[in-house]
């Protein structure tokens, strides 16, 4: 079962790397925030999987919960910040 969890965690890591494309190549700031949000949700699951691999779930759950909170706050704060500031325009494609 540990091998299965390891492969699963690696697959989720690959999905996070794919989402990173959206963070880098925008094209707007909001697209990047959406990408970061998707990565953060997957990180919560990844942390619990790491806890199962190390047989210390009870410790890693607190980290996962804190990470979910932090991800939510980061998305909320950055959305509110860019709503008031510059940066919400279409940049030239690379």
């Amino acid at each position: 079962m540990d091998d299965f969890f390891l492969g699963y965690a690696l697959f989720i890591g690959g999905l996070m790397a794919l989402s990173l494309y959206r963070c880098i190549y925008g094209p707007t700031v909001l697209d990047r925030i959406v990408g970061v949000n998707a990565i953060g949700t997957k990180t919560t699951v990844l942390l619990i999987l790491i806890g199962l691999l190390y047989h210390r779930v009870d410790m890693f759950i607190d980290i996962a919960l804190a990470y979910a909170l932090l991800n939510f706050l980061a998305v909320l704060a950055s959305a509110r910040y860019f709503q008031k500031r510059k940066g919400l325009y279409y940049e030239k494609p690379y």
Binding site: T44, Q83, L88
Partner: peptide, 21 residues
Amino acid sequence: LIVVFVFLASPTATHAITDAG
């Protein structure tokens, strides 16, 4: 509890992003 929190937080985050747009 993590699931409940994600289900409470994700509509709020989605709405914040849409509102900014």
